[in-house]
């Protein structure tokens, strides 16, 4: 177990380093640089050159990457090339926002979809099962910005129950924050619930077809008891995988929801930074997203091993 964790962490660090190289190379390959992107239409060769020099962009690429890596290893994310502020100053409040929204959405979505998935498995082919299937498939087939706009129209404009803007600020009270982020959370619920719900249902049902469940049925146990006591523990691994996949998505993939609800998360920061070629910011966001993915994957793998006695006590 310990060895597995160690292996996974080392592989994760290596992945992060590769990601940082890829991001750097990718940003370098894009046409134009931060100087021409900042000056935009008003750029002249002279002003671009002056800006480039003042930002240190006239140094060779390898040197700039090495310098960035050195600072990064010392915990210094550097300074934004475009607005001159420390990257952490822009990133940390947004990271908090992103985690807040992801946490809020996960707290609602994970229990809900796992429970509905189990219920669907217990009452397979019932009206409830079919309704859950249709609803979840429909919601996952619609793009999230569309779901967002429909919810906005219904809950903010037609029946003004919730605010249309989720523009949270640091001085907001916790309850205000919850209220402001309810609409984006609902939208995310529609997007992520389907996958977890259907995985839960499918993996529970797969186990239900096995020989030992049949024995349990022949023994005369009630169906719900069989599902919860015998099928669910053996179906946990794929469920944990689906949950961690969706948690990672909630952290790194909600840019559309951020745009629709004007939510200051990390996604918007990264998109802006890429379009302006602001390398330190792009790197910081990239590292963050990669860490979230790698970390959650590691945790889910470890949990899957833990949930499976055969793997836990492997010889």
């Amino acid at each position: 177990m310990k060895r597995l964790v160690l292996q996974r962490v080392l592989a994760g660090v290596l992945t992060l380093w590769l990601v940082s190289v890829l991001i750097f190379v990718g940003t370098e390959l894009l046409p134009g640089d931060v100087a021409s992107a900042i000056l935009g239409q008003s750029a002249t060769p002279e002003t671009v050159a002056a800006l480039r020099a003042s930002l240190g962009l006239d140094h060779p690429a390898l040197q700039r990457y090495g310098l960035w890596l050195l600072h990064f290893l010392h915990g210094d994310l550097g300074t934004s090339l475009t607005n001159g502020r420390p990257v952490s100053e822009d990133l940390l409040p947004r990271l908090y926002n992103t985690l807040f929204l992801a946490g809020y959405a996960a707290l609602v979505a994970v229990p809900l979809s796992v429970l509905v998935g189990i219920a669907s498995a217990i009452w397979q082919d019932s009206l409830f099962d079919r309704a859950a299937s249709v609803l979840s498939l429909a919601s996952v087939s619609m793009p999230e910005f569309f779901v967002g706009y429909v919810l906005l129209l219904l809950l903010a404009v037609k029946f003004p129950l919730l605010p249309s803007l989720a523009a949270v600020s640091p001085d907001m009270a916790f309850s205000e924050r919850l209220y402001a982020t309810t609409l984006p959370t609902l939208t995310l619920l529609f997007v992520v619930a389907a996958h977890m719900l259907r995985t839960t249902r499918a993996s529970v049902l797969a186990v239900m077809g096995s020989a030992y469940t049949e024995t349990a049925i022949l023994k005369g146990l009630p169906k719900s008891w069989i599902v919860v006591r015998h099928a669910l523990p053996n179906a946990l691994a794929p469920i944990i995988n689906a949950v961690s996949f969706n948690l990672a998505y909630l952290i790194v993939g909600v840019i559309m929801v951020e745009v629709v609800f004007v939510y200051p998360g990390v996604g918007q920061l990264m998109v802006d930074a890429v379009s302006k070629r602001d390398l330190p910011v792009v790197q910081a966001c990239g590292m963050l997203f990669a860490t979230a993915y790698v970390g959650l994957n590691t945790v889910s793998d470890v949990l899957a091993v833990w949930a499976n006695p055969r793997l836990r006590h492997a010889r």
Partner: peptide
Amino acid sequence: LIVINDATARTNALISGQV
């Protein structure tokens, strides 16, 4: 000043009285 780059979100914010 709240930055709302999405034109639809901007319009919604005005109609729902948030700006």
